[in-house]
Design a protein around this nucleic acid. Structure first.
Length: 719
DNA sequence: CAATCAAACATTTTT
DNA sequence: TGTTTGATTG
């Protein structure tokens, strides 16, 4: 019976799931069962005949979340939920544009540019326009284009106030023209184009509005302006919008997310009061109290306090090590101890603010022989060998794809150098045709032979595609193009790349298209939109390393949040404005709420960053956690646990830093020591200078910056 | 056209 | 400090 699914819900969850009419905003705290509410509501709508599968539009941010929703639904509902539109904004826009490609002014088999492709396209454009990439770094141009598209702004809509922005705007327009010419779209374009098509085509708009009576959105706090407009357009005046989010977990403002969309939704869709899910089923009381205390330092929250009936649990453990190496060793020791106590490594994670911090941790873990797994990094479809193979596939589908052609025209090396390519580009520009057409028409010339060979290669592949199955084609083009041979003769790394190419073939074998006639286009879209799970090896029991961002949505028994130092977490680039600090604080909130049973907050007094030793102050976030909830494990503070670490303090620094950093200065001061000054407040000693009787200390004060102090006069005390 | 060396530069990231 | 990118050279 379906009512069984409702029985396990708490009153607020039940209220959200069974909301009869109108729109709703569900303020779902960390670990409050938001995915469950979302999926149960869809099931409730359908099981109770309140909606049909076809009336449902459910949007998520990641493919993983969409898949999970799909899986849960197929368990709850007797029918296969195929009629529903469940997916990411981009996946759904892609689906929409594949259906209405003609109306959208796109070729039927339009290709999708990922970030790499887009950057390459921009570089190519700038070269052809002879724009200096010194004055206009391609990455900046890319960011300019994407951020404006994310706000729904075309180049024509911009009013640049200076010459620099005028040029960027001009490049934006030229880039869009190039994409249109080549029939490709980037990620943001998928949404923008869908939005524009729907907003200009009334018949289409009415059709979809009549269809989607229920629109559900996950992670609503992460929507940007364009996504909000997209949703509003699909919703129209009648649809019920059910948005689930948590303003305290908004950590993507830096890529255009607008938390303000939550308030906007309440105003635009007449939501009087958000439904708050505050009961947490994940963490113990002390962890939640710490999170609540921390986040209260932010202004303008919608307001929410997590609670649990699970009891206080263990205290939050604090550790302050001398160096980043000590900090890592402490974590390794604790992980080992926890493992002895029966915790699986996979249930433990260390979170950090930036990827650079993983190095020290990996080093310590490697030394200790503990299996670990680092998240983030290159994904499957982003690997160069895969992108090469896909570029050949794109050329088979459409040889006019300049991006693809440039990628593989000389891979493997076939004697077509930069010179030849430049000639080709000149020819194509002059005659206003694609590179492929230019290559076909290139009769004479010195490199005609190698170029002709390439043209023949592609033509042959296109011929072969007609008689081969899709999987056979993928396999064949890897061989016939020479890619396989190239990696076979490659001494280092070639092995793994060959394995990946084989995996690509397996992916092609098992790929199930919606429309078999469009299998190549669908496979390529899939490759762009779903870059692939992070890596293989998920099955092994391993300690987990990742950034706080990557940890969002995950949970672990034991969590270490490392590098809690001013300048690192909060990151120095965020220290300037209040918004920056508040986003960092939300990030810390996310980090804390990942832990189920045990939470460690660790820091170092001395850290190597960018090849320079720093002496950071403890993170302000540490002060925002009530001492009553914590237990300090640092060497100087305790005996029991710390005795295990005591040798590390004396051993490691000697091995790591041979410089003057460890020396005790006259008067008992140390470099890196935290000190207090009556006027300047707290700070850290960065450097020292001694001349006879005079001792000068260079102290970095939290509030007043770095200053030289003459110790004959300054009233400095150890902090 | 490949290999080697120097210089720049180094949050967070999904689609 | 370590990596990635680019420019130069053979």
């Amino acid at each position: 019976m379906f009512s069984d699914h409702l029985a396990g819900l708490n009153p607020e969850q039940l209220r959200a799931v069974t909301l009869a009419q109108g729109s709703a905003l569900v303020l779902a705290g960390a670990g409050s069962g938001k995915t469950r509410v979302l999926t149960t509501r869809i099931a409730w709508l359908i099981a109770g005949q309140r909606a049909m599968a076809a009336n449902i539009l459910a949007v998520t941010f990641t493919n993983k979340a969409a898949r999970e929703m799909h899986t849960r639904l197929s368990v709850m509902l007797p029918i296969n939920p195929r009629g529903m539109w469940i997916g990411t904004f981009h996946g759904l826009s892609n689906r929409f544009l594949r259906t209405h490609w003609r109306d959208a002014g796109l070729p039927q088999t339009f290709a999708i540019l990922d970030m790499q492709d887009q950057l390459a396209a921009i570089k190519r454009l700038m070269k052809s326009l002879q724009v200096s990439d010194e004055k206009f770094p391609p990455r900046q141009v890319q960011a300019f284009i994407n951020s404006h598209k994310d706000q729904g702004l075309r180049a024509e809509a911009l009013k640049p106030h200076d010459a620099f922005n005028a040029k960027l705007t001009e490049l934006y327009a030229a880039y869009d023209a190039q994409c249109r010419r080549e029939g490709v779209v980037d990620f943001a374009e998928l949404l923008l184009r869908s939005y524009e098509l729907l907003s200009s085509n009334e018949a289409l708009r009415e059709h979809y509005r009549a269809r989607f009576s229920h629109i559900l959105v996950d992670e609503f706090q992460d929507t940007n302006k364009l996504q909000y407009a997209w949703l509003t357009l699909f919703a129209g005046p009648h649809a019920s919008v059910f948005a689930v989010g948590d303003d305290d977990q908004s950590i993507y403002a830096f890529r255009g997310a607008e938390v303000g969309n939550m308030r906007r939704l309440m105003a635009d869709f007449q939501v009087a009061e958000p439904i708050k899910l505050e009961q947490n089923y994940r963490s113990c009381g002390n962890i939640l109290d710490a999170a609540n205390a921390l986040i209260q330092h932010n202004d303008g929250r919608l307001g929410k306090n997590l609670w649990t009936d699970a009891g206080a649990g263990e205290p939050v453990r604090l550790y302050r090590g001398w160096t980043d190496g000590n900090e890592a060793e402490f974590i390794v020791d604790e992980v080992r101890a926890l493992r002895r106590d029966g915790h699986a490594l996979a249930n433990m994670a260390v979170l950090y603010r930036s990827n650079a911090q993983s190095r020290v941790l990996e080093h310590a873990l490697f030394q200790a022989g503990l299996p670990y797994r680092v998240y983030g990094g290159l994904r499957f479809f982003e690997r160069q060998e895969i992108k090469h193979a896909l570029a050949y596939l794109r050329l088979v589908a459409s040889p006019e794809d300049d991006n693809a052609l440039l990628r593989v025209i000389n891979v493997p090396a076939r004697g077509i150098g930069a010179r030849t390519v430049e000639n080709l580009q000149t020819a194509s520009r002059e005659r206003g045709v694609s590179l492929w057409q230019a290559a076909c028409g290139q009769g004479g010339g010195r490199s005609a032979a190698s170029l002709g060979k390439f043209v023949l290669l592609i033509e042959q592949l296109r011929q072969d595609a007609l008689r081969l199955s899709f999987a056979q084609l993928v396999s064949h083009l890897i061989d016939f193009s020479g890619l396989r041979a190239m990696y076979q003769s490659d001494k280092d790394g070639g092995e793994e790349r060959l394995e990946n190419l084989d995996e690509l073939i397996s992916a092609a074998v098992s790929f199930a298209p919606e429309d078999p006639a469009q299998i190549i286009a669908e496979f390529l879209a899939h490759a762009s939109l779903e870059a692939g799970e992070h890596q293989a090896g998920a099955g092994e029991d391993a300690f987990q390393l990742m950034t706080v961002h990557a940890a969002k949505g995950l949970e672990f028994d034991c969590v270490f949040v490392s590098g809690l130092e001013e300048g690192l977490f909060p990151h120095e680039n965020a220290l300037n404005d209040r918004h920056g600090i508040e986003e960092e604080r939300r990030l810390m909130y996310v980090a804390i709420t990942r832990a189920r049973q045990r939470l460690y907050l660790t820091q170092a007094q001395q850290r190597m960053l960018h090849g320079q030793t720093r002496y950071p102050l403890p993170s302000r976030f540490m002060d925002e956690i009530p001492p009553a909830l914590t237990k300090n494990l640092s060497e100087s503070m305790t005996a029991g646990l710390s005795s295990r670490h005591a040798p590390a303090t004396t051993r490691a620094p000697a091995a790591r830093s041979s410089g003057p950093a460890r020396q005790e200065l006259p008067g008992g001061w140390r470099i890196g020591q935290s000190v207090a000054h009556p006027k300047f407040g707290v700070g850290v000693i960065l450097n020292a200078e001694a001349l006879g009787e005079e001792l000068r200390l260079y102290v970095n004060f939290a509030e007043h910056g770095a200053k030289w102090l003459d110790m004959r006069f300054a009233k400095l005390t150890p902090a």
